[in-house]
Design a binder for these strands. Structure first.
Lengths: 189, 189, 189, 189
DNA sequence: AATGAATGAGCCTTCATTCAT
DNA sequence: TATGAATGAAGGCTCATTCAT
């Protein structure tokens, strides 16, 4: 039973994720999710309170999957990290990016600056920090202030992401942007 | 008469701007604006079709004011430009940034990648291009590809803006981010 | 002044007539008429109370023009009368027919069975009566009960009119219908 | 469940029918129906899209009931048919006639000449055709062109109906009108 | 657990009508 | 006379949320 329930819960989350990918965060209604899942209105409320809690759970899940490192040298790891970002930005299937931003705006307006979505950002920065500091130790990278370097790289990534969802970006835009992000880590050595 | 009407129209735009600053784009209703302006429901429709057109007019106005250059050397101009961005990002009074992003998401989802808000982005890039190429000519800056350099700087600015509206940024974050943006223009000299 | 006013009044009536022809009676708003006439909202109220009184005045005018006899023998007159009806029914330019029916429904619902529009019907019947009784006297027509004969012809005309505005009629439908209407007047002699 | 829903749906249709009978088609609002049914605004939308679809369903139902033949000879059948029409026209309880006309005007204006209401007219003509051709075969009626004869009878009926809803008719008007309609079928034998 | 009917609030939009100028 | 801004009522539609079954 509880097993069956867990499966249904997961099914709802998976289905809802596509809805949020399609429509962002704000315009998704419980009705949208009910229809996408083909369950009853009341049924959805058994598992979730509202769109906000559904979305938060989706993000928490995402966080688990994100930034799975790979590679031996710090350089490899960074290349992998950036390549993942690139793939995500270019991905034809709509991503959760818009929904994430909308959700964060929503929370930020209400003064809540810590939430599952900001955690995702912070995790990204931490991941970068680790990679960079590893690279600095191994002599692959140069950085005065690792934290700062990680943040700066992240700003570019965010800038690219937001541009992708608003003005549009080409593959070249992304590649050149990421090279630029890297440049400071290797150029000034 | 028409003069009075123009004043009222402007009053509505000014008032609506504060509403959009407070609530973003998507959650602003005609009712919100009606109440903020203390006019009747029908009265607002005399001047505007809906929130979208009101917002677009606000953005067009904003565009006029944005990026007013100043300074003699290219370096001065760039410093001024970046400082303006910094002030905007730090500004305590809520800015239109969130509303702008939400509006652009909305348009982007509908496949409309050219709108008053993306124009604002593009104008920013063009302004940067002009300043940078001027600096390159005068020897103040170094840049292989001016267009690319301008875009990269813009990505950082956007990254900072979005971070400011989601995870929050400190003044130092902004300053260091902007210095990073500049670094490529001056480092390789 | 009063002359100028009369002209404007007439201009409004003429313009409004096209509006009623296009949209019927019920869905015409004061706004529609204001826009068609290109005058101010307030301006229209100087001359008329509302759509109802405008329409009634138009109908009264119509009544004056309708059923202008012509022809020497009763047969000629009847032929002319029926031909006018035929032309009206076939007329590509939308007629007032729908507006008239809607107006009459509206009045009938309110228990007012005498109004400018029903007068038009009654005038039609009277005209027919006159023609038929003239024909009976001259031996051209045969009719037991002139009033009844006139009414019956009128029912067919109304039936054709309403069919024209609902299910559609062909020119042949009209011609055969009118011949049928005539048949009783000449066949049984 | 679905059974209960079907009952409610039917209840709404029945109640709405009285509303349309009272007020015609155009001036009936969803609010009117909501109030007549004593349900909530949203509740009505569970079952129907808008007044148009409610009305269309009512008409489709009506169509099922209409023109149920009866009688042995063609003459009997025709007498029955015409008597039904007469009863309908005379009926004290307001009929759907006005609503039907308004609905057809509305559709006709939009170029849609085929709809549940025009079907009702066409079914009437077909029914008449069948009866008449049966009568012609049995020698009870005379008709050169059965289709035409049926149409002509229908025009008179429509003329009587519309007169009943506008200028008013007496029982005698109807009877004499229907006799007139019949006359051509039997006079020339 | 699950269903889906029901409610009611909330926003949208259009007009008739008034009124200061 | 004439203008057109302003108001407020009216009707449309959609949803979050509840609840009897």
């Amino acid at each position: 039973m509880s097993d069956k329930a867990a499966k249904k819960r997961q099914y709802i989350l998976d289905t809802a994720k596509t809805v949020f990918s399609d429509k962002g965060f704000k315009s998704v209604t419980m009705k949208d999710i009910v229809e996408a899942c083909d369950i009853s209105r009341g049924g959805l409320y058994i598992y979730f309170d509202g769109t906000e809690s559904i979305f938060e759970e989706i993000i928490r899940e995402e966080s688990g999957n994100a930034f799975k490192g790979s590679g031996k040298s710090a350089g490899d790891k960074l290349a992998f990290f950036l390549n993942e970002q690139k793939k995500q930005i270019l991905s034809k299937e709509k991503s959760l990016a818009v929904a994430l931003y909308e959700y964060m705006f929503f929370k930020h307006e209400n003064g809540e600056d810590s939430n599952p979505a900001t955690d995702l950002f912070k995790t990204g920065v931490l991941t970068l920090e680790k990679i960079i500091s590893e690279g600095v130790e191994s002599g692959e990278f140069y950085a005065d202030d690792v934290k700062r370097a990680a943040l700066n790289v992240m700003y570019i990534i965010e800038g690219l992401k937001i541009a992708a969802e608003t003005v549009g970006v080409t593959q070249e835009d992304i590649e050149e942007g990421l090279i630029f992000a890297l440049s400071s880590l290797i150029a000034d050595e």
